[in-house]
């Protein structure tokens, strides 16, 4: 089973405030020096507060077999980001969340892949979805090697201990989520199961991730006419 090439799909280019400035193909947006574009990173969370992680499939072109958040991708230009993300969750995990996804923060990051020479400059909307316990997922083996649930405390410790096992954006999006959860200590969908709140101070700087210098984009994006086709995965 192989994934169709998404290189010609369109992504939405943005300025450093997240305002739309046009579109470009996935290929062009990831060629050095890269163009800042809109993306999403979804976390699904169960009633006990654990987060769902996916191990990226071996067959992926980028970061195969590394662990990432539940699912991520690029929204179709012009579409509501939670709609694009919900569809992507359904495609990758074989499961459609009932409650809508909520945006909990933005992680702007820049990363280069030394192996492929491709560049990531993403304006990454971090989305959270609350789900019931005991769900059966049917992940697409072309996308996902494995799934596992982990508490946010354990995840932060593992990220610090073995960063090379994780996708480079996971640290940043996890910190955004942690900041959000610190500000709203109880989980709205499961008041009976209070989230074990991490002992971190709420005054911690929001950009504690080493891989997230939110450098403003200097290269000028090339706007082209937007055509809605397929949600690009990352």
């Amino acid at each position: 089973m192989t994934t169709p090439s998404r290189e010609s799909d369109l992504v939405e280019l943005v300025d450093d405030q997240g305002g739309s400035t046009g579109t470009a193909s996935v290929r062009d947006a990831h060629e050095a020096p890269g163009m800042l574009h809109r993306a999403f990173s979804v976390f699904l969370r169960d009633p006990s507060g654990r987060l769902l992680l996916q191990q990226r499939a071996a067959v992926k072109t980028r970061f195969p077999l590394r662990w990432g958040n539940t699912c991520c991708g690029h929204p179709v230009p012009g579409e509501d980001i939670t709609v694009s993300a919900g569809r992507r969750v359904a495609e990758e995990l074989g499961f459609t969340p009932e409650a809508p996804l909520r945006e909990v923060g933005v992680h702007v990051y820049f990363a280069t892949d030394p192996v492929t020479g491709r560049v990531e400059r993403e304006y990454d909307h971090v989305l959270l979805g609350e789900v019931a316990g005991g769900i059966t997922f049917r992940p697409d083996p072309g996308e996902v090697a494995r799934l596992r649930w982990v508490s946010i405390e354990d995840l932060r410790q593992e990220l610090a201990a073995t960063p090379e096992s994780y996708a480079p954006w996971l640290d940043g999006v996890t910190e955004r989520l942690a900041t959000h959860l610190d500000a709203t200590p109880s989980s709205p969908s499961s008041p009976s199961a209070p989230l074990p709140s991490p002992p971190s101070s709420p005054s911690a700087p929001p950009s504690s991730s080493p891989s997230s210098p939110s450098a403003p984009l200097s290269s000028s994006p090339s706007p082209s006419s937007s055509s809605a086709e397929g949600t690009g995965g990352r």
Partner: peptide, 20 residues
């Protein structure tokens, strides 16, 4: 399960097998 696809992944696309 995959057959031709496996050869394509490893030889043409330079990827690890999705269905080893």
């Amino acid at each position: 399960t995959a057959w031709k696809g496996t050869f394509d992944e490893v030889i043409r696309k330079g990827l690890l097998m999705s269905d080893p």
